[in-house]
Amino acid sequence: MIEVNGLFKKFGKNQVLDGLDLVMGDGGIIAILGPNGSGKTTLIKCLLGMVIPDKGTIKIGDVPIRGSWKYRSGINYMPQIADFPGNVKVRELFDMIRDLRQQPDRQQELAELFGLGPHLQKRLSTLSGGTKQKVNIVLSFMFDCPLLILDEPTTGLDPAALIRLKELIREEKSRGKTVLITSHIMEFVAEVADEVIYLLEGRIYFQGTVDELKKKTRQNNLEHAIAAITATPENA
């Protein structure tokens, strides 16, 4: 369970998180949506301890995360931009992360699934954007963790890889894991998400299932529902 209480974060003059409260249960796929700059990535980075909130508390599994780092062994994180150290080979990167985490992994299986075999001996700087993203996916699914955080996981993927990614996400869900996803691709969200959290100006604007959202906004398409959600504030 993730419990966020009164989270504030300001970058310069920009109040990114403005007293955000949030409770998420265990298991299921939760999509965090919101316009650009609504604080999605900041919220995720707060959960990971990469951004330190000005005020407020975050508890993951009933344990406050402030000042702690061990809890991160229960989280797999996939960053938005697949940027890796350039002069490291793909295999070395996998080995390094494995060495750092010391947890059982299924990197080999995943690398094969995404067809990374021929790229393992290449340096990361020579890979294409999509291939880097595949490396990113393998890195974030290789360990068995109760919480997965995926920030824009679909960027740059070809259709075949996208299908495999969806399968992987569903598979993780069926194992009872919590998967947090941010995405701007509504089709993708509508297909995989059980629950939607809509962020606006640093607060939760809506939290519920996709169907609830459609019902509230009286739209039968998630894309339109999201577009309508802010236009009709009385629905919130």
Binding site: G49, M50, W69, Y71, Y77, D83, F84, P85, L100
Partner: peptide, 16 residues
């Protein structure tokens, strides 16, 4: 230059 590397590490269970 190692900004990406650092960010990758920050999400791992390692103290800063």
């Amino acid at each position: 230059n190692s900004k990406e590397f650092t960010e990758l590490l920050l999400a791992q269970p390692i103290p800063r």
